[in-house]
Each structure stands twice: as structure tokens, then as C-alpha cells.
Design a protein around this nucleic acid. Sequence first.
DNA 1: ATACTTAATGGACGATCGTCCATTTCAAAT
DNA 2: ATTTGAAATGGACGATCGTCCATTAAGTAT
Lengths: 215, 215
Amino acid sequence: MSADARTDAKPSGRSSIRDPDNNRRALIAATLDTIAEIGITDTTVSKIIQRAGLSRGMIHLHFGGKNQLLAAAAKSFAEEYFTEMDKLVQQAGNDPESIVMAVVRADLGDVLMNERSTRIWHAFRGAANTNGSIALFSSTRDKRLRTTIHTAFKTIAKDYGDEDDSILARDATFGLLALLEGMWVDYLSNANEFSRDVATSIIRRFIKGLFPHHF
Amino acid sequence: MSADARTDAKPSGRSSIRDPDNNRRALIAATLDTIAEIGITDTTVSKIIQRAGLSRGMIHLHFGGKNQLLAAAAKSFAEEYFTEMDKLVQQAGNDPESIVMAVVRADLGDVLMNERSTRIWHAFRGAANTNGSIALFSSTRDKRLRTTIHTAFKTIAKDYGDEDDSILARDATFGLLALLEGMWVDYLSNANEFSRDVATSIIRRFIKGLFPHHF
DNA sequence: ATACTTAATGGACGATCGTCCATTTCAAAT
DNA sequence: ATTTGAAATGGACGATCGTCCATTAAGTAT
């Protein structure tokens, strides 16, 4: 065995002391954790670098400033959400009914909806009005997700031969997303009293009201 | 007539230059306006007193500090909302159906739901996690409003002789409030595309799904 | 070995934060 | 008129904010 431990220290390895990408990620993670813990108002450069265990100048070095770090954190947070959502939805069946309920269960599940994420979500939403760079990544759910739900509801709506097929599907999409948003607010307000099962069954009940032969 | 013009300058009069109560209200109004305009993060003591046209020390004089002023502003904002809501609901008929729809129309009407109020609402909600004194006044809608809706739905639910009367009413209450919350988020995200009529008809459709013989 | 590029450091900087209080102003009571 | 007490003022204060950069350390190429 001529291979020694140092040989595999390729550029792509993690053994190096220096690791800009890792530090970049650490700063974003520290930012999100700080926001979740003490709120975006009290999230300062000092608190972030202290939590990340990095030096003061690194925020300016890697992001150019605090605001750009916040924007990057918002983007990263949104990407995490949609990546996880995609994963969970793809595990569902192919029939529209399963897809819709997979979205509901994913959005209300503890992976996506928890104290940390609801706090971060609302912190960014509150800040999005004035900070345009944050607003881009916190628009009401993702376009892709909206399309997924809309497509599923359009398929279902065809089973109800009424003339307002498309309006029904649009209303169901709009309403479902609003319901999910409202559940997040409710969870944020009192996480201890909130029941995921109750929330899920309520949403199912509302959807079933629109599509009595399904759900 | 021994009464001269000065006699009626009672403590409750408004003729005086000094008017502590008015200044107190002015500070709260300036705080809310500032939050709506530039966000709670950038809302500073200097910005508030500048907008109110008052002197620097007045915040400490009347409220004891910035945080207490914010709490008072949150309380005032919530009270405004519920006062207006009460007014609009009382103008409605006495049948449960009218009451529910009155709540919906009030919550989605331009008096209660507008850019200013949705921004303030979400700013406070985002800050409520860390600031307990704010949290008290921004709990998911008011208890009284919740009771009003719940009572109406219980009456309606009795017409559907199923055994899950109370669960149905509970679900309808929970779901309606979540829907309304979600609509506020949607309005905040893109106020220009938002349609109050569409939102109202969607909510009515969802409720009608639960109570097909009504709405 | 040496030169060169990039990553990382942490202190200095002016600006601004919220708080506080000595002082002044006003209005009612005497 | 004079006294008394509350309302209002605005500058001073230390603390902290975010930014920036001269310097050091680490990794790569010659």
C-alpha cells in the first residue's frame, strides 16, 4: 500500500483548512439560525459571525455586505423548501389526487413546517416589502408548485362536467395555497396547540367539498 | 350668563397647545406609518419622531422606550382592526350565513385589507416571536371573532344531521380563518394582481363545499 | 526555493442607534 | 403675581451598528 493519507487530498476534498464554499454555506446557515432564534431585527453582523465562528470581514469578502448575505440566505432557504417539496411529491403516486395530498402532507410535515422554518419564513416575508432582493425568493409559494397543483386540479375538475372547469381548478389552486399559508401562520402563532393531523383533515375536507367524488 | 369662553376649557378640551393624549396617539400613528413604509427593521426612534414632528425625548416620556412604543402600536393596530370588524359585522343580518359572509367581506374589504395594514400585520407577526409584548396582540385573529364564526357555523351545521356536528363547525371555523390569513399573505405579495371579488368568491365556494345547502 | 494568487483576519472608522436628563415652557392653582 | 407640577425639549452619552482595508496566512504555479 503506497497510498498515504495525504495523497487523496484532492482539490475537491474537504481536508483543506481553507474552504471558501463551506464558509459561504456556514455564513448562510448562521444567518438563518440567528433569524430563527432572535428575529431579523436583532440579527447583526456581529451575531452572525460569532455563531459561525468566523472572522468579521468574511461577510464583506464573500457576499459584499450584510444585505446581500440576507438575500443569499433567503434564496437558500427557498431552495431548500422546494427541493424537499419536490422530493416528497415525487414519491407520491401519479394520479392527481395523490399529488395534491402529497403537497398538503409535505407542506404540513415536520420537515418543512417547523418552528425554525415558520419563523424564518415570516421574518423574510415581513422584510420583503422594503428589501426587493429578498422579495424575489419569497413570493407566494413557487410558480412550479402552483403549476403542479393547478394541473392536478384541472384533471380532477374534468370529471365534473360543469362548464366552469377551468375556474373551478383555478379556485381550488388559489384556495388550497391560501389554506396552506394560513396553516403556517397558525403554526407560528401557537406551535404547541397545532395539530398536523387536524390541519390535514381540515384541508382534505375543504377540497372534498369542491370535489365530492374525490378525496 | 356667567360662563365665559374659557370656562368650558375642560380637561377634555382640545384648545390647549399641550395635548399629551394627542401626542401619544401621534407617536403611535407615526410608528405604524413608518413600519408600513420602510419596514420594522429600519424603524428607528429618529424616524418616528421626525415623522410625528415631535421632540426626541417624548417616546421615553410617554412610553418609557422604543419597545414599549412598538407594543402600544401593535395593540392599537389590533384594536383598530377589531373595532372596524365589529362595526361591519353588526351591520349584517342576524342569520349565521350573513354573519359569516360579513366577516369574509370585511376582512377582504379595502378598509381592513390594504397595503398599509398587510405590511404592518406581517411586520408585527415576524417580530412577535422574539418580542412577547407584541405577540399578545397579534394572535391568530381575535378570540371573539373566532367565537362569532364558530357560533354561526354551529348553527348551520345542525341542519346537516350528521353526528359530527361540532367537528364540522370546528373545521369550518379553523379553515375559514386560515383561508383569510392566506388571502392576506397573497395580497401582501402582489397587491396589484389581487382581486377582492375573486378571493371572496373562492372562499364562498369553499364554504359552500362544506355546507351545500347554504351560501 | 521563490513568486504569486486567493482566503482569511480583526481592528479602526464614521455613522447611527436608543436612552437619559438638565433645562425650558406652559397651564392650572394659589 | 407667584408658585407649583406636569409636559415638552433636544443635546449628550456610551454602545453598537455595518463597512472597509492593511495585514497575515495558505495554497498553487514556476
